[in-house]
Design a protein around this nucleic acid. Structure first.
Length: 354
DNA sequence: TATACGTGGCT
DNA sequence: TAGCCAAGTAT
């Protein structure tokens, strides 16, 4: 065992740690990997129901590799960061073709797979293979920034490198799987962002921030920047049968790869929408109704969404049948609709449309 | 190095 | 309540 830091953490874990999360049973590299990807920037309570449904549908790396991508995205819909889902399937296909269906127990080879970075590779090594490896997620950053009174925002390379150094130096050679879970659990349950439970923390006796009574000063906060305001038209094109036109979004950008209502150039005036639909979608429209807009806030900008209900004339046809489909709402919900668009389609209270 | 990428919980 | 943040990675 390395230092008393790790030992105190393990003793605490034995009494208070989380040991019955869904990915803790039937533990193998595939199950650990899926959980780690879902848990990136996403809280445990949010992940659990998605994880259960995902594993029921894609129980093995082969099942995931062979599935239609819309099926994978559909199971991810509502979780956010959809590149994770597309990368997940790409990586599954690579594991099958390049590694014979077995995840490599090697840091560099794991990192060669899309969506797996330094910390996720280490988590898989520790959790699935019980190999000594060092993780550094948000919880660990907070614990270490406080324990060593590391100044500055972890987004800065200098600060990040310091945290990695501390993380490496504390990683024990024995019980790495439990240690890795322990330091994350401590961050999630005791060394929380606000109101940390220093009174019950096993590390308080050596914690520099606690000694200075300044736990919440660490880690340093991100410099704040003004979020730009963007705007878009979202058109609810309805054909005489009551079907709605959806289009598959490009793989990059917001809601990448998901099916959503078509967007139109925000510079268009409302009386130009019908003509714009005819031009860009190749179908004839009538009866444009502008709905109340609403603002949606993302990590880096605000988006003002202006919904427009447009009736398509009978026998309307669109170009690009692969990328655009007329669908009844129930069918639409089975696809990878992102949550805000799903709300538009299903919540009459919000839009007074449907 | 900075920015893009989502959604939901917390204060 | 509006802003901050969460089991990070890719570009």
């Amino acid at each position: 065992m390395s230092d008393s830091f790790a030992q105190r953490l393990l003793d605490w874990y034995d009494r208070h740690g989380r040991k019955a999360l869904p990915w803790h049973h039937d533990r193998n590299a595939y199950r650990v990997w899926v959980s780690e990807i879902m848990l990136q920037q996403t809280q445990v309570a949010t992940v659990i129901p998605y994880y259960e449904a995902f594993m029921a549908r894609f129980p093995s790396v082969h099942a995931l590799a062979e599935a239609p991508v819309d099926d994978v995205l559909g199971h991810w819909s509502g979780l956010g960061y959809y590149a994770r889902a597309r990368n997940l399937q790409k990586a599954a296909q690579q594991v099958v073709t390049e590694f014979g269906g077995d995840f490599p127990a090697d840091q560099a080879q794991l990192e060669s797979l899309p969506g797996i970075g330094r910390s996720t590779a280490a988590a898989i090594l520790a959790q699935a293979f019980q190999q000594r490896a060092t993780i550094l997620d948000g919880n660990v950053k907070r614990v270490l920034a406080r324990h060593h009174a590391v100044d500055g925002w972890p987004g800065q390379t200098r600060v990040l490198n310091q945290l990695w150094d501390h993380a490496e130096s504390h990683t024990p050679t024995e019980r790495v799987r439990d240690y890795t879970q322990a330091i994350m659990d401590l961050g999630a349950m005791v060394c929380t962002r606000s109101r940390p439970g220093c009174d019950t923390c096993p590390l308080s006796s050596s914690c520099a921030a606690y000694a200075a009574d300044e736990a919440t000063r660490y880690p340093g906060s991100k410099p704040k920047k003004e979020k730009p305001e963007k705007s878009t038209w979202m058109v609810i094109l309805e054909d005489p049968d009551g079907r709605v036109l959806l289009e598959k979004r490009p793989a990059s950008g917001i809601w990448g790869g998901l099916w959503s209502l078509p967007e139109l150039d925000p510079a268009l005036e409302s009386d130009e929408l019908a003509e714009a639909c005819e031009r860009s979608l190749g179908l004839s429209c009538q009866d444009v109704t502008i709905q109340a807009g609403f603002r949606h806030t993302f990590s880096h900008y605000h988006l003002h969404i202006r919904p427009a209900l447009i009736a398509a004339r009978p026998q309307a046809r669109v170009a690009d049948d692969n990328d655009r489909r007329w669908l009844y709402r129930d069918e639409a919900l089975a696809l990878g609709l992102p949550a805000p668009i799903r709300t538009l389609l299903t919540d009459p209270g919000q839009t007074a449309l449907l």
